[in-house]
């Protein structure tokens, strides 16, 4: 099943696939910067961040985003034709914690939802979602002028400049503290419509079909507002 070719029409359309990565725990050394740089002639990674943009429909990051989160970076967001992927990664060797967090994975409406992969100590959590651009306008309109060698800054500067990265950094921090309410927010939007209470019990999914919006921290309230179904 395949779309063989797409010739765009009369109206201006500058769709692209883009990725933004940020290293939180450890900056990259020169050797790893060079490795990232080799993925694209136009990428200009510095020791904290890198951005990839692929114009046109059929170019993409060689090898995918996954290896970069496994080895070099801690958070990432990607947009492709209005489909968004958020990802956070961290290391935790505790098998109990790994097992606990992996229970939160679910495949919801339109394959949107939460995916959790564990490779040795590395836990990679990815969220597939669609954004309400009306609500998300504020964070999408922030300055993303980073990832350039001549523009090195502190970690805080990267987060200050890009609210979406800040949101993901906060989620990552909450997950590290074993606060899993971010999953509830995604479940509420993409999982809840698909599962009855009986199914939730039967499948031992750690969710309830109730979201207490008021008790959420500010970042998750905001996340809840910007998510939407397709």
């Amino acid at each position: 099943m395949e779309i063989i070719s797409v010739r765009k029409g009369f109206t201006a359309d500058h769709s692209s696939t883009s990725y933004k990565f940020l290293a939180i725990d450890e900056p990259l050394d020169q050797k790893n910067i060079n490795k990232v740089s080799s993925l694209s002639s136009r990428a200009r990674p510095d020791d904290r961040a890198v951005k990839f943009t692929y114009k046109g429909d059929f170019n993409d990051l060689p090898g995918g985003w996954w290896p970069l989160l496994e080895k070099h970076y801690d958070i990432m967001y990607s947009e492709s034709y209005d489909w968004w992927l958020f990802a956070v990664a961290f290391s935790d060797p505790d098998p109990d914690k790994q097992q606990e967090i992996s229970r939160y994975a679910f495949n919801g409406l339109e394959d949107l939802g939460v995916n959790i992969d564990i490779v040795e100590e590395r836990i990679i959590v990815s969220f597939s979602c669609v954004l309400d651009y009306g609500e998300a306008y504020e964070i999408l309109d922030t300055n993303t002028n980073y990832g350039y060698k001549d523009n090195k800054k502190d970690l805080e500067d990267y987060l200050y400049d890009d609210s979406l990265l800040q949101l993901l950094a906060d989620i990552r921090s909450q997950l590290l503290d074993e606060d899993y309410r971010a999953f509830d927010v995604f479940w509420h939007e993409y999982g809840e419509p698909l599962y009855s209470q009986d199914e939730i019990k039967e499948l031992e999914i750690p969710y309830t079909n109730e979201l207490d919006y008021d008790s959420l921290p500010n970042n998750l309230q905001y996340l809840s507002r910007i998510l939407r179904c397709i």
């Binding site: 395949e2 779309i3 070719s5 010739r7 029409g9 009369f10």
Partner: peptide
């Protein structure tokens, strides 16, 4: 909008 797609049989 003018988008023209060639698609396979499926």
């Amino acid at each position: 909008i003018g988008n023209t797609l060639d698609v396979d049989r499926e």
